[in-house]
Design a protein around this nucleic acid. Structure first.
Length: 267
DNA sequence: CGCAGCGCCTGAAGGC
DNA sequence: TGCCTTCAGGCGCTGC
């Protein structure tokens, strides 16, 4: 499940391969989630940016190609268009002969072409919180945002509103590092400050390790990330807490598996 | 307008 | 072996 570190890792490898390239042809799987890809024919890539988990390629046609990888989306290059991938959802043929392909088993991903900066038809992107690794991410604002709602802290992180780019894995990791209970509905100022720091830490570590590969995620070169070998909390229910040796517990929060330490994540 | 609840998807894994 | 059930979960949509 690509979150910010995975998408940023892909962006860094993707950008130098496609910026300056013109799209000779493009096609898509017959679903409204992907057919926008065809609207990029004839355009040239000017830049590849990222907001949260969204890749945003700026085109010279004053439009943005927005790609969300969903749960199982993979971007890759090919010399020839794949004919044996039944999960190919969109493809772009570039003027240097390369094919850029978007494969996505579960179709939770999405491709959209919109006027530059106009994300109204992508509500989560439109209302996206601050970039966690930028100066826009402020601990005091974050504290107030979390306490402005009565929803669980982790629920709010996953909503992408108080901060962008955090998904289930990095939410569990950040809450564990910050000693914040994911189910808590309020958070103290020190707790929010710890969480603010922890979010930056887990995302930076994730980028440094080129992402977390649990099953489907691959870097743009097709390799595994490395961060899955460094998880402190996610997926470790039943194992002892690295900090206090209490057995980590699993619960379900908003239909998502949540792992936490019942002793040292007090919040 | 915020948000709870649900549906979308399909392969892997486990039970029998 | 094979059928069935459960699980994984980000996000858009609906309706209260």
């Amino acid at each position: 499940m690509p979150e910010l570190p995975e998408v940023e890792t892909i962006r860094r490898a993707l950008a130098p391969r496609i910026v300056g390239r013109m799209i000779v042809d493009a096609g898509a799987f017959a679903s409204a989630k992907f057919t926008d890809a065809e609207l990029t024919r004839g355009a040239t890539f000017e830049a590849v940016d990222r907001r949260g988990k969204y890749l945003i390629a700026r085109l010279d046609t004053a439009k943005d190609l927005v790609v969300h990888l969903g749960m199982t989306g993979v971007l890759r290059t090919a010399d020839q268009r794949s004919t044996n991938d039944k999960f190919l959802r969109a493809w772009w043929h570039l003027d240097d002969g390369m094919f850029l392909e978007f494969s996505d088993v579960r179709r939770f991903g999405r491709v959209a072409v919109v006027a530059n900066g106009h994300y109204e038809q992508l509500p989560t992107l439109h209302a996206l919180g601050p970039e966690p690794l930028s100066n826009d991410f402020d601990a005091s604002v974050f504290h107030r945002a979390l306490n402005a709602s009565n929803r669980a802290i982790k629920t709010q992180l996953l909503s992408q509103r108080p901060v962008a780019g955090v998904g289930n894995i990095y939410a569990d990791e950040a809450c564990w590092i910050a000693r914040v209970r994911p189910q808590a509905r309020t958070i103290t100022k020190p707790g929010a400050t710890r969480l603010h720091t922890a979010i930056r830490e887990v995302l930076e570590d994730g980028i440094r390790r080129k992402g977390t590969t649990l099953r489907d995620y691959r870097t743009f070169d097709g390799n595994y990330g490395e961060n899955q070998h460094h998880l402190r909390c996610y997926g470790r229910a039943g194992e002892p807490c690295d900090r206090c040796a209490t057995i980590l517990r699993k619960t379900v929060l908003d239909a998502r598996t949540t792992t936490f330490c019942p002793v040292c994540q007090r919040s």
